[in-house]
Design a protein around this nucleic acid. Structure first.
Lengths: 227, 227
DNA sequence: TGCTGTAGATCGCCAGGCAATCTGCAGGAG
DNA sequence: CTCCTGCAGATTGCCTGGCGATCTACAGCA
């Protein structure tokens, strides 16, 4: 069997290792979007980026298709690809869709408050809290997104998992803009701690209200900064 | 200006004409999935399909990435690409997510029951009814999907529009399976007529109930046939 | 009968290149 | 002086041809 060594060889590459180059490239670009290395509206030149990533242009283009479909990137024929730059309108729209779905995810989690899924979410919360304490703004940002993604992921719905990128990246891009100006990490900690706790306690009505409130608050905050 | 002749040349190509070859290929494959020309589980061989479509392999691969992301196709590294074949579990899951979203779309439409959006939905309904009357099963199938898509599209939410493919293709693949066995078109006509009418009348509670009922019924029917 | 190994098919990826299209800027008309 | 026109450079869309990696199937052997 050829599996073992394939896995062993790639252990020191970085974070997660994907089996194909294309996936690797996608992850790297996603990461760059997270860290703000690629900024909203920024133009992407294929040859340049392909070279920087050490892959051929066709392979890069396949990767870009994925990210374009997720909404992180936007493609205009013969003009090129640029990082998405959601308008206030679009952010409101995405949050409206996000509410019932994240609520659904939370309710699913609440059905087994002490199972492995909920443990995974708690863990994501802890990591986020630790990042906040450490004072590393970038890390706080990344783990913040990871916490919300964990809620979607651990809900064990393949459909929700497929939808998350569409919703998550818009949120992420908006927050990335914000990131430098980010303040009041303490409040952030309190809010997320409470969110997770409410899910664990499992009262449906409270969960619905809390998730909606959480999302609404988050969007409002971003929108206030955009205007 | 170089636009006019570009448009003129392609007038006789078929339905909608996309500016890039890649998009053209994507549409064609989507269409093939709709008509059942490509069946669930079927393996796709790149060279073969590229040749059949008259494009190069890299271009086809870019197209495939899109469809893979939409969930119509599934890619297994070094094994190849095949048409998705949702399990009963996945179909239940997708319908659970579909309910709140299609409900949201319906509620949005109901806010302006006589506006252009609702008119578009009505039109889609009429086309569907006409197809049923004509006795053309394939056309009935296609317009059925188109009607539901219209509900999502005319809700004017960019996020819903982006999510639709993820949800719609699963439904579509399931229904395609079913298509040959499809019967009782009269009942289908009644149900969809009622669905649209309920939305037009605009009572929120009724809409919520009707959409949920409609989706539940549809999924149950497909699942019954699968087992 | 069950396992191993080899050959063919297919995929992942690359290099290099050509035509179509967009963009920016210089030059001429009003 | 402003606005339009036309050209050159940059960039994308797409193609051909090809090489190594990996999977699958079948034949030979224990």
């Amino acid at each position: 069997m050829g599996m073992p060594d394939t896995a062993a060889v790639t252990l020191s590459g970085g974070a997660v290792v994907t089996s194909t180059r294309r996936e690797e490239v996608s992850s790297r670009i996603r990461r760059a979007l997270l860290t703000g290395e690629l900024r909203p509206g920024q133009r992407i030149k294929e040859v340049h980026l392909a070279e920087a990533l050490g892959v051929s242009r066709p392979t890069l283009r396949e990767s870009l298709q994925q990210l374009i479909h997720e909404g992180s990137l936007v493609q205009v024929p013969y003009k090129g690809v640029h990082v998405a730059q959601p308008t206030a309108e679009e952010l409101r729209d995405v949050s409206e869709v996000r509410m019932p779905l994240e609520t659904m995810a939370a309710l699913r989690l609440a059905r087994d408050p002490h199972g492995p899924a909920m443990r995974g979410v708690r863990e994501a919360l802890d990591v986020h809290l630790a990042a906040i304490d450490s004072g590393d703004d970038l890390q706080a940002h990344v783990t913040h997104l990871a916490l919300h993604q964990a809620i979607w992921d651990f809900a064990e719905s393949p459909t929700l998992r497929k939808i998350w990128p569409l919703v998550g990246t818009q949120v992420q891009i908006a927050l990335t803009l914000d990131q430098a100006v980010r303040h009041d990490p303490e409040r952030d900690a309190v809010l997320h701690r409470r969110l997770v706790q409410v899910i664990e306690e499992g009262d449906e009505a409270t969960i619905v209200a809390e998730v909606e409130e959480h999302i609404r608050r988050s969007v409002d905050e971003v929108l206030r900064r955009l205007t």
